[in-house]
Design a protein around this nucleic acid. Sequence first.
RNA 1: GGCCCCGUAGCUCAGCGGAUAGAGCACCUGAUUCCUAAUCAGGGGGUCGCAGGUUCAAGUCCUGCCGGGGUCGCCA
Length: 585
Amino acid sequence: MNVHALVHARIIAALQALQSDGALPPGLDFTNVEVSPPRDAAHGDLASNAALVLAKTAKMKPRGIADKLVMKLKAMPEVQSIEVAGAGFINMRFAPGFWQSVVAAVLKERAAYGRVDLGKGERINVEYVSANPTGPMHVGHCRGAVFGDALVNLLRFTGYDVTAEYYINDSGAQVDALARSAYLRYREVLGEDIGEIPPGLYPGDYVKPVGAVLAKDYGRTLLDTPEDRWLPLVRDAAIAAMLVQIKEDLASLNVKHDVFFSERSLTLGHDEIKATIEELRNKGLVYEGRLPPPKGHDDGEWEDREQTLFKSTDFGDDVDRALMKSDGSYTYFAADMAYHHNKLGRGFLHLINVFGADHAGYLTRVKAAVAALSDGKADLDIKVCQLVKLFRAGEPVRMSKRAGTFVTLREVVDEVGRDPVRFMMLYRKNDAALDFDLAKVLEQSKDNPVFYVQYAHARAKSVFRNAGEVFPHLKEGSPDVLNADLSCLDDPGEIDLIKRIAAFPELVEGAARAHEPHRVAFYLYDLAAAFHGQWARGNDLPHLRFIQPNDGTLTAARLALIEANAHVLASGLALLGVLAPDEMR
RNA sequence: GGCCCCGUAGCUCAGCGGAUAGAGCACCUGAUUCCUAAUCAGGGGGUCGCAGGUUCAAGUCCUGCCGGGGUCGCCA
């Protein structure tokens, strides 16, 4: 049951009926007709802008349309009151019986409550994390990982066939540097004094085990081998080891990808990068030319030369983008173009990429590439996750990759736990910077929204445990609860809680459309607050307590409400990938 | 200098083009013989960075400034 959708459909039907009656002109565009809860609850439960939106094209006064619409809508059985307000808003208020029926619907639909079939089974590819396989994931990767994972959950919940994908940047200079670092560690294991790790290589201790594995697998045989022979072997071993670690890091956050796509696989057999470039060349979008030097900062290294360029300026980019490095190898962008070409070739018409803030400047050219490669038929949404600043009790945590003091994802998860990390990473809009305080996130107080929401769920479960001592037949999901006489739920606080529950499907739909999982987190906080509030009212007013030892009928109805509340809390937390505990200990 | 993100209460932040802009923290006042007080109720606190524009309607969209952060051919 989706209250919002139901009312919206009723309004559209009423508008069409007015057209049949000749009271409204034909050919009106209803797409901007919306239904939304008014900011001020005194205005009612739901309001519509229909009359305001249609006034101009219908060549009628807003209030004139509104009055006619109200006459039609008055017949709605759910409606308790309906009136025209302000410039032409239609404010509706629904009868308690209508809200009570929402509880019954939630109990019937259970985990399916809130599902909206936006995707209609269409396939969509969500690429996220995609960190270099040159070391463990650091805390900055956390946010993209959690964001992507929650977005995948949200899209699956709303009817999309989602492929969660990780692009492994396993070619280019960085993985060669990793291989050389591993080779040094290999020589170290065999007893050589390797001294300082040279600049440009990876000094971290995490490379040492790779050296040990190499020594075990190859003995001393690689020592006398020239670099062009050992490098591919060492590189493969090092990348494989890093990927194992990355997958473990992701698993610690409960983040799962369906596909790990290797950049190097693009050129292993058939050269897909070359094919992609040629395809664009045939479309007139790749050419040989020169770029102006970057403005505004002196770059002594700048060398003017003719190069292979993609005409991204045709798609709104500032400059055309290089596809070949001066040594003849492909740029990262050229490979990434081929990768997106590959995604399109696998039949994806909907693509989402999750980027870190440092890649924000890369966004336009990727969109340009997808537009060019799909002839505008595919859509790509790029979500940029802004920086995460790490604090401990208000003090910034200094990080330096060079000094080896950067904080890994694993350290954060081990220190504060998976649920707080996930929730806090989602308790902020993706494009706003995030301060993450390792000390505060562990405080089990109302300062911490994670525990606040989880506690609401645990509290709901606790009510059932306690109710069972008085009314053994009133178990969760029992017929006596499911068939309770819901007309007892007439306290304003109870109705408010139901209204909050009733808003869930619309909230999910909006979050999925906008690709904004944080909306779910904020919604859950509000829902939890409504529930905690109703609970506490029982402190002052004993007749509002959920368990009424002398009234099994009333208790059953309130338990039904609590069960519906718990269902929605659990569904929402599941979308965020956060546990909904039965008790807090 | 170009481009991207942010700017809303003292602080951290929500806010889908809609009506008198919200929450948490902090501060003040109150609630525990009672289902977990890990909670709740009440109070004060705002030129939504500035200036224009579009619109019946702008915190929200557009343009230009100001401030903070990020990024800037052959790193990924």
